[in-house]
Design a protein around this nucleic acid. Sequence first.
DNA 1: AAAAAATAGTTTGAACGTCAAATAATTTGA
DNA 2: TCAAATTATTTGACGTTCAAACTATTTTTT
Lengths: 145, 145
Amino acid sequence: MDINNTLNEVLVKLFRNINTIEEKAVREGEHRDITMNDMHVMEAIGLETAKNMTSVARTLEVTTGTLTIAVNSLVKKGYVDRSRSEEDRRVVLISLSEKGRKAFLAHRKFHEDMIDAVVAELTEEEQRVLEKALIKLHAFFRETY
Amino acid sequence: MDINNTLNEVLVKLFRNINTIEEKAVREGEHRDITMNDMHVMEAIGLETAKNMTSVARTLEVTTGTLTIAVNSLVKKGYVDRSRSEEDRRVVLISLSEKGRKAFLAHRKFHEDMIDAVVAELTEEEQRVLEKALIKLHAFFRETY
DNA sequence: AAAAAATAGTTTGAACGTCAAATAATTTGA
DNA sequence: TCAAATTATTTGACGTTCAAACTATTTTTT
């Protein structure tokens, strides 16, 4: 019962705060003109080869219309490059510009630091247990909801 | 290094999923006309005595202007009662209506059920480690930002 | 090959959430 | 008393989201 309370409390607070905090981290960094949403879009585009709109929209679970608006803004701000595919001229290819890559990597570093801070306090054994627990949780959520 | 990657990935996905799930739970419940944001406002108002706009806005970390708009909608939908304070006529007092209380309690129950279901999936050791990790994560955020 | 259907993206209109700055009403304090 | 502070609302702007209408292109059917 006690652990349930702690879990509930921590989870609730974490969830409520995590977006705000991450947003702040993004805004206080070198690239202040990107929103958290922009960052999610950039993460979905990734560092690899250019992706088309539909696949990125599917990753983000938003409509392509929504993604078009986000990409318009990212292109205007210089974080994303957009071009037509030559093979299929319906397709629009998007990829991170140099600036976009830099922002992406800075954000990834923030995430890594966060994980390091958490893991630093745990023994190897505990780390393994935590990993197992989280994977279980994730599976549980996917199955149940 | 590998375990860190897994942790990061699972944590990110978990957080993203839980938000979606919670939103769905709210929308599919008895009170379908409330948004997740509405629910947060109601949680900040709480079941106790009426609160003024400024204190609730501070709890939510939004401006009073933002809160005014949210409360307008909640009053219109019948979840929140709004009245002027008699002692200080600048102050607006807000509290949950009966309908608001019902929605609040239903949401709380959802949370409790979710946590119960999650904890049931884990061994005692996993529970202990998870709790420790989450508290550490929360501390990281509080300290860093 | 022409017509129909499918696919990929964009645009539009509406709703919500947010802020900063301007405004209005009231209370406090010098 | 009257200037300053406090409390809340309004306004204007921007960001996020969706569904539905639309455009352009490719694929399939007849």
